[in-house]
């Protein structure tokens, strides 16, 4: 039993000098080689991510003929007019539609999701476990299972191709995950604060909104980011639910749907720069938000998945 003690004592020393105990020389050169090796691979993958994106942005400044000609041509004139054209060709509307839907759907998701999760996490009542599983089970099923009846359900409610229809559907389909995550979060909050609030005479509703919800802020931010990205990037639900229903029903495409639509139109119209400009416009807010909240976005998405 005495030997390990001696060896653990050697560890800090070994760390400060930077040499491994067994093979001092080989370990160091191996480290250098591995370091160069890993940087090589890491840089290569970084280039594979960045270069295609930059190339696409650059392509929006080219002419259609140039785009078809060579992949490595350089734009002849740097005119920003193409972005204006892309905006007018629909990107502006698609953008606005997406924002209108999300402004309502994300807060509503968070509100209803945390209300349900809170009650399920904090109150004992008959059917509690059943309701919890009822919510969580939805996360397991593919959305395609529901698509056909969902379409006719929304049609019967006269909400096809309306913002309110899409908002309600987004909220409903975000419930399983939001309830699951917030349920876990509310369980970890201390009971003492809750009891103090009740003793002070606060009603249940008031306790929730003024005490518990503010305490759950880190969880709300994680799920909020997750839901915002998920709903912003949603494609199949708007594809089914947001089609003009008659000749005079205006298009209310969201951004993802609109980009695919634009891809078809611009392919026929031989005006690909407009498409690429559209994609660039669609990427910019994501890039800005991502770079400014990069840490929260990464933490939010990964912790949301791991719970």
């Amino acid at each position: 039993m005495s030997a390990p003690i001696k060896e653990t004592a050697a560890v800090p020393a070994q760390r400060t000098t930077g040499t491994a105990p067994a093979r001092p020389g080989s370990e160091r050169s191996e480290g250098v080689v591995l370091n160069a090796f890993s940087h090589g691979f890491l840089a290569l993958w970084a280039l594979l991510i960045v270069l295609p994106l930059l190339w696409l942005v650059l392509s929006s400044f080219k002419t259609d003929a140039q785009i078809g000609g060579s992949a490595f041509g350089w734009p002849q004139h740097w005119s920003l007019g193409v972005f204006g054209r892309a905006w007018d060709k629909g990107i502006g509307d698609y953008f606005l539609n997406t924002v209108i839907v999300l402004v309502f759907s994300v807060p509503l998701t968070m509100l209803l999701g945390s209300m349900a999760a809170y009650v399920l996490a904090r109150y004992q009542f008959w059917g509690n476990r059943f309701l919890y599983f009822f919510f969580v089970a939805g996360a397991m099923f593919p959305v395609f299972l529901a698509l056909v009846p969902l379409f006719f359900m929304v049609k019967r409610l006269d909400m096809l191709n309306t913002y309110q229809g899409l908002i309600l559907v987004y909220v409903a389909y975000s419930m399983p995950f939001t309830v699951f995550f917030m349920h876990a979060f509310f369980r970890t909050l201390p009971t003492a604060v809750f009891e103090a609030a009740v003793l002070d005479g606060a009603s249940h509703t008031r306790t929730f909104f003024q005490v518990m919800l503010p305490m759950a802020k880190p969880g709300l931010i994680s799920v909020g980011i997750f839901n915002t990205l998920g709903q912003w990037n949603q494609f199949i639900l708007p594809t089914v639910l947001m089609q003009p229903q008659s000749g005079d029903d205006p298009e209310r495409y969201v951004l993802t749907q609109g980009l695919i639509q634009l891809q078809q139109q611009m392919g026929y119209a031989s005006d690909l720069p407009v498409l690429f400009a559209g994609v660039t416009i669609a990427m910019i807010p994501m890039l800005v938000v991502y770079l400014s909240f990069q840490r929260q976005v990464q933490a939010g998405l990964t912790s949301a998945t791991l719970k």
Binding site: L112, M115, V119, F134, A146, V154, A172, Y173
Partner: peptide, 17 residues
């Protein structure tokens, strides 16, 4: 607190399933 979330979820998710 449960009324709105449960009914939305029933109408648009569970019932179509």
């Amino acid at each position: 607190f449960l009324l709105a979330p449960v009914s939305l979820y029933l109408i648009f998710v569970i019932w179509p399933y």
